[in-house]
Amino acid sequence: MSLNIAAGRITLARTDSTNAEAFRRAPDLKQPLWILADEQSAGRGRRARPWVSPIGNFYGTLAMRVTEPPATVALRSFAAALALRDAFVAITGLADNFTLKWPNDVLLNGGKVAGILLEASGDTLAIGIGVNLIGSPPPSAVEPGATPPVNLLAETGLRLTPNAFLDHLAPAFAAREASFQSQGFGPLRQDWLAHAARLGEIIIARTGTETRQGVFESIDDEGNLILRMASTTLAIPAAEVFF
C-alpha cells in the first residue's frame, strides 16, 4: 500500500455536498485532496440524514485513492475520529473534554461537535467531516434520545475559521493515516478505546430492525461494537448508539 499521504486543498464557496464534489473530481485525482465548502446545499450525514450547513461551520472531505478491501478501508473512520480529536485538543488544550462515540462522532462536553461519513466508489474514498465550529442545530432538531449537538464557540469561547481548523486537522489525519498504513489497525484501536465515550457502561444499540441494550465492552479488530448482554456478547457492525 502507498505511503503518499501529502494532500492538496481547495475551498469552494458553495456545493451540494463535499463528498459529492469529491466523486466528481475523482477521475482527475492525482493525490489526496481536501475539499472545503463555505456552504452546502445538500449536506448529509449517516443514513442519508440531512446535515444542517450554516456558513461558518466546517464542511470538508478528504478524497483519496484506496486499494485495500472494503472492510479495511472502513477502518479509516476511526483514524478520522482520532485525527479530529487530535486537532481539537491541539487547538483548545482541553484533552479531557473531547471523547469519541462509536461509530463515528466526536463529543465535546458530552454533546456532538463533529461527525464523519465515509463513502467509496471504485478506488476513491471520500471521508466527509462536519464540525460545528460556530453553530449547531437545536436539540429539538435531532431524534429523541440522540446525543444533543453542541458547537466549539459556545462550549469553549474559541472562534475558528474552517481553513484554520483544517490547518490542524490535515496534519493530524496524515499522522494517523501513516500509522494505519505502517502498523495496521491495532494502535488506532487502542487509542480510540482510550478516548471512547461510555466504555464499560450500559448503552442502547439500535439497528433498522432491533434495539439491544448492554454494556459497551470494546471494539474488535474489525471495528465492530462489542456489546455484552445478559445472556450473550454480540459484535455489532453497524448501529445507532444511544446513551
Rank of each mutant, 00 (worst) to 15 (best):
L3Y: 09
L82Y: 00
D86K: 04
I204E: 11
A6P: 05
Q40T: 05
T92M: 05
A81M: 06
R14Y: 11
F185L: 07
I35W: 07
L84N: 06
N104H: 09
D105M: 04
R85K: 13
D28C: 14
L62H: 01
G200M: 06
N151C: 13
R198M: 11
I10R: 08
P144I: 06
S218A: 13
K112Y: 05
P137L: 03
S77D: 06
A95E: 12
I10M: 12
R44L: 13
L193C: 14
P138I: 09
G184N: 01
F58W: 07
A13H: 15
A90V: 13
G214D: 11
G208L: 05
M1Y: 15
V66A: 02
I134V: 15
F98I: 00
E119M: 02
A154E: 14
Q40S: 00
F216C: 03
I129V: 14
P162E: 03
A164M: 08
T233M: 10
E68W: 06
I202E: 13
A154Y: 13
N109Q: 07
M1F: 12
A230E: 11
P32W: 01
A175Q: 15
R47H: 14
L160A: 03
T67W: 03
A114D: 12
T15I: 00
N97P: 08
R9S: 14
L160E: 07
Q190P: 12
V52Q: 15
